[in-house]
Amino acid sequence: MNRAQKRRIGEYLIEKWFLFLATISIIVLALIVAFLFKEGIPIFKSVSVGDFLFGQLWYPTDEPADFGILPLIVGSLIVTAVSSMIAVPLGVLSAIYISEIARPSVKEILKPVVELLAALPSVVIGFFGMVVMAPFLQKVFDIPTGLNIVNASIMLAMMAVPTISSLTEDALHAVRRELREASLALGATQWETISRVVVPASLSGACTAVILGMSRAIGETMVVLMVAGGAAAIPESIFDSVRPMPASIAAEMGEAPFRSDHYYALFATGIVLFFMTLGFNLIADYISHKYKQVGTATL
């Protein structure tokens, strides 16, 4: 065997090895999804899809049991929405500051600190919410419990800010220097340059960042389990307790008898959650592709 042949075989093996590794992760993902469906679908023998998704009562251990997950869906959506209201401005504005305004020395400190926030284990954030934020909210707003939507949303925002901030910063950073120079050379101030050129040019990246941050918030389990209060009821105010889907699954799975209706219902909840995060990711993907193709001409 000559050298050229050896090299070709080497190339071939390396290529196949990488293909194999890439395939493994796809197979594992497919198996998880298949398992999720296999364990979740049987609930629909006892409850219709409509009653499951839109039923307002979640009493999985009563006789007869109620498996309506609308309160859980609403709980998830509301903490995600409120946390986005906090995390999006914080994340995007801090990214603008870090990327565009901060001096290099300040940037060198700020950037790792924001990213360090992402390294905090969620249980630590949840603990902080329980022992610091909850009593604080209870006292300030004079409410029966500090474990509620506001608390969960603030804690989730703390988790989403680093994602949003560092991805937005990447998007801002990717804006060509030539565009900033063009704007400055036309007599624009730094702020005009940021708001009219840099931010619009990075909008698709920033949107992706926001959506990925939100999908992180909707799937987060430990924090909402610890600080959302756990009431499986549709909230009437933002100081009510809620039971987001991940919290419900985590709290009840240990209690649910194997392959009981309750067990199936929890997996079915997992399917709903899966579709929601999948939806968020598809939207993020769509936005980043759409605007990559045509530039941001319409902005």
């Binding site: 060509r176 030539e178 120079e181 036309l186 007599g187 624009a188 902005l299």
Partner: peptide, 28 residues
Amino acid sequence: RKRVGMVFQKPNPFPKTIFNDVAYGLRI
């Protein structure tokens, strides 16, 4: 910079419409 304009080495139009690109400095 408004009195001393500049054209760069590489063309650097904004990712906007042709109209908005030229109108940028006017709006500023």
